[in-house]
């Protein structure tokens, strides 16, 4: 049974488990799910103590959007470790070819594959995406938005750019390495500097909190966008190293 549970890469039918095992698994999960459902429905809701706490301390955080305040001030350890997780994934997916001089280079292998509709649409869409990303980054201090949303929008613009097949991304270039690691580096540096002032790592002084959060957010946006774009281009083979080392060897 356990051998049949191991993943396969090719077949497309839904399940290879024997019928008895499937019924067994389904009944166990149905029972467990029903118990979870009942527990969820019958549990009384906890009073919003954390929400009250956040709204009381919001004035000291440097921003007005409570979610940004939680992410980048009250619980900034979470965000720091999250960016570290992203960086680890990016390093795991790094190509190890010779270093490339440029981050974005024109594609060399297919001039014929130009999609006219896509490229002309992207002439409008890419500047708009950059504008929206910058807006989300700036407005994150006051309204819904912030580093993650801005980075995701920028990465989506990069994915659209990769789909035109006119450009390749060289993640081995020095610029790309800086872009990928800048978020974590600046986050840690900010934490150390503010820790030297206030005595606690990542504890921002109240008067400079707004500036520090903005600096961290800008660096995090750039790194998140670069890393998410790298994940896509490595999987979709839209980067420079792919023609030489693809699949298993990279």
């Amino acid at each position: 049974m356990f051998r049949e549970m191991s993943p396969s890469f090719t077949d497309t039918h839904a399940s290879t488990l024997p019928r008895v095992a499937r019924v067994l698994v389904a009944s166990v999960i149905t029972a467990g799910g029903a118990a979870l459902l009942l527990a969820t429905l019958r549990t009384d809701k906890a009073p919003p103590e954390l929400a009250v706490l956040v709204s009381e301390q919001l004035a000291t955080s440097g921003v007005e959007n409570p979610v940004t305040a939680v992410l980048l001030n009250f619980r900034s350890y979470d965000t720091l470790l999250e960016i570290a997780v992203l960086l680890i994934v990016a390093i795991a997916m790094q190509p190890h070819a010779s270093s490339q001089p440029r981050i974005v280079a024109p594609s060399t292998n297919n001039e014929s594959a130009t999609n006219l509709v896509l490229t002309s649409l992207l002439r409008w869409l890419i500047p708009l995406s950059v504008l929206v990303g910058g807006y989300l980054l700036w407005t994150g201090a006051y309204a819904p938005g912030g580093a993650f949303q801005a980075g995701a929008v920028l990465a989506a613009a990069g994915v659209a750019l990769a789909l035109t097949e006119r450009y390749q991304f060289g993640w081995q270039s020095a610029g790309a390495q800086w872009l990928i690691s800048a978020g974590l580096a600046i986050f840690i540096a900010t934490g150390i500097v503010s820790g030297m002032v206030t005595g606690t790592f990542l504890q921002y002084p109240v008067t400079y909190a707004a500036t520090l959060i903005l600096v961290v957010e800008i660096a995090a946006t750039v790194s998140i966008a670069a890393i998410l774009l790298q994940l896509f281009t490595r999987l979709a083979r839209a980067d420079v190293t792919s023609p030489h080392t693809s699949g298993a060897s990279s």
Partner: peptide, 28 residues
């Protein structure tokens, strides 16, 4: 009122989930 702490956790969770998915796909 709306509790912002679970929102921040979910935001972190979404980004970590996409990173984990990408790593699994790459390994596959």
């Amino acid at each position: 009122l709306i509790d912002p702490v679970p929102h921040a956790m979910v935001l972190t969770g979404i980004v970590v989930a996409v990173a984990g998915t990408a790593l699994c796909l790459w390994l596959a």
